[in-house]
Write a protein that binds this DNA or RNA. Structure first.
Lengths: 340, 340
DNA sequence: TTGTAAGCGTTATCAC
DNA sequence: GTGATAACGCTTACAA
């Protein structure tokens, strides 16, 4: 690999001059020298060595992103996978690259600490955040720059972008109401899940604004599994017939699939006897029969927004605005129909 | 961040001594000094700066991995996503990290060239390789280290690991034969697809060894789409009834889904009237009705094998063995049944 | 056994 | 305008 020295020698100037020209601190370099340097650099195929640059600038232009660790075959990590891809793309557009790492499920922070101490990354991107997220607390304490896809403790002040689950589920619920549904239920996540709670809030908002009663038995909570959906529908179907919900919004596609499977088992036609909405627009959705109406997270836009925050965050400031909420898009398919 | 200088000062020794101790070139350092240095380093939380180390060692301990660029919502990139995760994990176990980048679909090599010239990565990992892959040709010409998940031109000599599609499809076809099927068809990929051709070879092998005739009309080719599967079954169903295949192996889950959708449309019960096998074990498979029997690629093992090749490759040698073929695992579900 | 100093490829601060 | 040269944090001859 040619170095700056090679260019200097070939062009018959000093390395300082080469550096000036290449960094466009060109104001006071003569046009002649400038041309000369550029031409030689180009000719011998010179490109500044990133490591040397980084050492001098005390940066890496790398952002660390930690993968979830998931057992193979229990996937449905579609959103995270998509996120990772668009993150890499958005990072590149801003002159960064993503360094991926993994961490044992239990203790994420050692991996973070190691990367910080060895100066491998300039900042981190978090995703899949939870309430009182240990990673966020750690990075906040370390005062290490990071941006987050997802919220956590509302008292902690950090830069985040998130999908507006409230808004999304609210829109989905309104859609069901428009279709004539009056008895609408929701399968939510456990109370600890902030993401789940934001989505639930959308359901409550739409229900209330339509003047529908909010029945506690219409709100069931369960894990992010197919089983949660199955058992929710089973419970609702144990109600007297005139109290059974005619539509249900699921906190995720995974759960929605469970509802649909149980419906099949009960001999119910989803889209007619029962309407179902999911969340995430997992690829599965389009292949189910009927195909699943769902909410699609605006992942590309989220990544763009995150990267826009990176500058201020690296400068030790909070970006303006410090939080961005992006609405998901309701994807209409065949799992919802008019009531009756 | 504490530097080696800080440790040296605190411990009352020179930076060289600190370096010796920390790199275990400790043979000639007195036990006393050694203890002292270790203790101070530990106390002030010193960790060697990766960039400085890299500059000196002329390496980065980073391997570059380029994401496919896929439009959102036309996904089914499950295999690649899984691969990326396990690659990151395997890399870490070997002291490396993965740097992800993306490239415009048309011209991948500029991105590679840039990363090489700026010395950002020590090697590349390729995936989703095709016949006469331009990236492989480029890296071969540049003599830049890389390892590949997937084969390409057989005349090119490079280190690769791949799923043994031939073996996998052969096993699947034998399974169908065991179930009593005699008229077995295959939806393959276009002739340019080496991966598709290896899978097809497995079908041919099993068919021949069972003494079944290989009918040209039983081999249909199409793109990696649902539509391919649909149209294949439609064509087969246009045959006289006694010539219609009773089972079919699809080159991918995506195609298998198409077959199943078309079967539904034709009023056929998959698993009874018709047996279907897919390839990839996409998450969708388990949620389809009936669930899809398919071949699962051994992604974790592939990543392990690739990383084992990295050492020799970085040293400019070819690993021993230079190719590894790993068999996929047949996942039995409900889409196949006995004939009749 | 330990310290001094050169060098990795840059950028940036000075003189000239 | 341009060129020495120090500095970034580390490793490693070589000298002491």
């Amino acid at each position: 690999m040619p170095t700056i020295k090679d260019v200097a020698r070939e062009a018959g100037v000093s390395i300082a001059t080469v550096s000036y020209v290449l960094n466009n601190k060109t104001s006071f370099v003569s046009e002649e020298t400038r041309r000369q340097v550029l031409e030689t650099a180009n000719r011998i195929g010179y490109r500044p060595n990133a490591t040397a640059r980084n050492l001098q600038a005390n940066q890496t232009r790398l952002i660390g992103y930690s993968w979830h660790d998931v057992p193979q075959n229990q996937p449905m990590n579609y959103v995270m996978d998509t996120f990772t891809y668009y993150l890499a793309q958005a990072a590149e557009e801003n002159g960064y690259h993503v360094l991926t790492f993994t961490h044992p499920r239990g203790k994420p922070t050692p991996s973070y600490h190691e990367l910080i101490l060895t100066g491998r990354v300039d900042a981190f991107v978090l995703a899949g955040t939870v309430a009182d997220d240990a990673r966020i607390r750690f990075l906040l304490d370390e005062k290490y720059p990071f941006i987050s896809f997802g919220r956590s403790n509302p008292d902690w002040d950090f830069a985040w972008v998130d999908t507006d689950g409230t808004q999304g589920v609210c829109e989905a619920t309104r859609y069901l109401i428009e279709l004539g549904h009056r008895r609408i239920a929701m399968v939510a996540w456990p109370e600890e899940s902030i993401t789940g709670n934001y989505r639930l809030a959308g359901y409550l908002q739409a229900t209330r604004e339509a003047g529908l009663p909010v029945l506690p038995e219409y709100i069931l909570r369960g894990e992010h599994t197919v089983e949660s959906g199955r058992s929710a529908l089973a419970q609702w179907w144990a109600l007297p017939q005139d109290q059974r919900p005619t539509a249900m919004v699921a906190v995720s596609d995974q759960v929605a699939i469970g509802v649909m499977q149980q419906a099949e088992q009960l001999g119910l036609a989803v889209g007619q006897d029962l309407s179902v909405v999911g969340f995430d627009d997992t690829p599965v959705g389009q292949f189910l029969r009927p195909s699943l109406t769902t909410l699609q997270q605006p992942i590309p836009e989220i990544c763009q927004a995150l990267m826009k925050m990176l500058g201020p965050v690296l400068a030790g400031r909070l970006p303006e605005p410090r939080h961005i909420l992006l609405p998901p898009r309701l994807i209409l398919r065949d799992s919802c129909g008019t009531v009756g």
